[in-house]
């Protein structure tokens, strides 16, 4: 993890397909590559398979009964889509932030420390304090909550809760963070703060690879370096965000961008 350089391919999918209920193929062969330090936006109309694809990357689809993922997913060059892959180890380094903020019914501090403690990573109060502070600072939440770390996370606003979830994910020291429409339940100002947070994580030079599903084209434009467009279970086009937005090649993509559907 430590020797991740800016441009190493962290995650690569090859021929990844997803089938629900054993018959409904929701995602057809998808090949994508994600690099450290980059932010990739996944866009496309509702139901096109963005979340489905995202959930492949941390093997969360395994939690859905009767869902099958085919193909290969390389993480640090190793195929993780195998029966023997240790899901729990894997998810410690591939974090995920959901559409609805999901703080646990614990204090702000405990929300951050919960998983690292469970994984036996923390020794002593100093380490805990430091982790709480750095994670909250990275997620741009520290100044707002530093005096009420012992209070319930549920007392925070929606945007703060979402940033807490990001902080909680960062506290796991992942090298990949997956976001599934992290701002769709938030107001514009909270959305803006979260976008800033994502950008600052990308620019911090830690080589964290971030992948964000979004319905908001401006958001994709603001936060991402690369963009992949999905349409009815196909990954239709991918490229730098600039190129995708200014010179789309596929007709469906240009229709989508001009708002003809979606």
């Amino acid at each position: 993890m430590s020797d991740t350089t800016q441009n190493e391919a962290l995650l690569t999918t090859r021929n990844v397909t997803v089938t629900y209920d054993l018959t409904h193929e929701a995602l057809h062969k998808t090949d994508l590559t994600f690099k450290g330090g980059e932010v990739t936006a996944l866009i496309g109309p509702s139901g096109c398979g963005k979340s489905t694809f995202l959930r492949c990357l941390n093997l969360m689809n395994r939690e859905i009964p009767k869902c099958r993922v085919g193909g290969e997913i390389f993480y640090h060059g190793r195929n993780i889509n195998t029966k023997t892959e240790n899901l729990f180890e894997l998810r410690k380094s591939i974090g995920m932030v959901f559409q609805q903020p999901t703080p646990f019914r614990k204090s702000i501090r405990e929300n951050i420390l919960f998983a690292p403690k469970k994984h036996g990573r923390l020794h002593g109060k100093d380490e805990e304090d430091e982790l709480v502070e750095t994670s909250l600072k990275q997620a741009a939440l520290w100044d707002e909550v530093k005096d009420k770390l012992k209070q319930s996370a549920h007392a925070l606003s929606g945007g703060q809760q979402q940033r807490l979830c990001i902080a909680r994910t960062l506290a796991m020291k992942p090298d990949v963070i997956l976001y599934d429409e992290p701002c769709s339940a938030l107001d514009p100002i909270s959305t803006f703060t979260i976008e800033e947070t994502i950008r600052s994580i990308a620019e911090a030079g830690a080589g964290i690879c971030q992948i964000i599903v979004t319905h908001n084209m401006e958001q994709a434009g603001r936060v991402s370096d690369r963009t992949a467009f999905f349409y009815m279970g196909d990954m239709v086009e991918t490229g730098t965000t600039q190129q995708i937005f200014s010179a789309p090649k596929d007709q469906r993509l240009s229709d989508y961008l001009t708002g003809r559907f979606g």
Binding site: M60, E63, R91, F98, T102, T169
Partner: peptide, 12 residues
């Protein structure tokens, strides 16, 4: 979502 969030953090 609480359940999924915990699993996504590598908890069993």
């Amino acid at each position: 979502s609480q359940h999924d969030a915990a699993l996504a953090m590598g908890l069993t």
